[in-house]
Amino acid sequence: MDALMVAVADLISEPVPSFDFRPADAQSLVGHDELALAKEGLQKIFDRGLEALADHLVQKEFLSYSAIFLAYHTCPSELKDLSSFGANLSEETSAFLQAQHKLKVASNLSASITQKKFVLLQQASKYAEVKKEILATDEKVANLKAMIKELESEIKNLEASLATAESDREKTHEVLDSIDTQVTTVRDGLISDLAQASAMEGMTRAANELVTQQQSAWDSLRTTFAKLS
């Protein structure tokens, strides 16, 4: 179609030669004004593109303009494509539009597939990252659980140590109470003895003097007896 448009555009742009080998009847059938309108009409249709031929009115205009143009040029070899193009114009145009629609559907489907693949790749990448985070979290949870078990074991040991310490504390309190009782008893006895000793101080002095005198007398008597014997 692009080649056809280029060929027609080139032909339209060519100047009309000063000599003419057309039959007289062809010249009489197509006037210059009508040919100019046909050229202009064809150019507009070609500018609009092949999709424009889906319109039946445009098809009629195209066939009419083509007939005028071909009648003036008496179908030279360069215009074979133009003369044969309008043979099955309606069917060919319909087939073209259907094929174009299929291509568009296929293009949209391809774009959709590409987009979905991209989304899947993104999600797969995100899944891998999340999976990695989950594995790291699982490992962290396992480590924390192990730490908790160790702490529970340590807590049990500490509770046992605490119970022992409390028991020892009770025993220490018992010993302390016993010592306190003994100290109190001894203190009270000492106070009593000190009071008694203070009261007996004069008597003790007199008794000491008496004992000293008696011991001296006894020693003197024993010495005397030893001399006499």
Rank of each mutant, 00 (worst) to 15 (best):
L53Y: 00
L53I: 03
L53A: 05
D55P: 01
D55A: 14
D55F: 00
H56R: 03
L57F: 06
K60A: 14
K60V: 02
S64W: 12
Y65V: 00
S66R: 00
A67G: 11
F69H: 00
A71I: 02
A71C: 13
T74V: 11
P76G: 07
E78M: 08
L79H: 05
L79E: 03
K80P: 04
K80I: 06
K80D: 15
D81R: 04
L82C: 04
S83R: 08
G86E: 04
G86Y: 03
G86T: 04
A87D: 04
A87I: 04
A87R: 10
N88P: 05
S90Q: 11
E91N: 10
T93P: 10
S94L: 12
A95T: 08
F96I: 05
L97C: 03
Q98M: 08
Q100S: 11
K102S: 08
K102P: 02
L103F: 05
K104P: 02
S107R: 12
N108I: 13
L109D: 06
L109P: 02
S110L: 15
S110Y: 05
A111E: 12
S112W: 03
T114H: 14
Q115D: 10
K116G: 02
K116T: 04
K116M: 15
K117W: 01
L120Y: 09
L121D: 06
Q122K: 12
S125K: 02
S125P: 01
Y127E: 09
A128K: 07
A128V: 09
A128P: 00
E129R: 12
E129M: 09
K131D: 11
T137V: 08
T137M: 14
D138R: 13
E139N: 07
K140R: 12
V141F: 10
A142R: 10
L144Q: 13
L144D: 14
K145S: 12
K145E: 15
A146E: 12
M147S: 12
I148N: 10
E150D: 14
L151D: 06
E152H: 09
E152Q: 15
E152G: 06
S153P: 00
E154L: 13
E154K: 13
E154W: 00
K156L: 15
N157F: 13
N157C: 11
L158Q: 07
E159H: 08
E159L: 14
S161T: 15
S161F: 03
S161Q: 15
T164I: 02
T164E: 15
T164N: 03
E166I: 02
D168Q: 01
E170A: 15
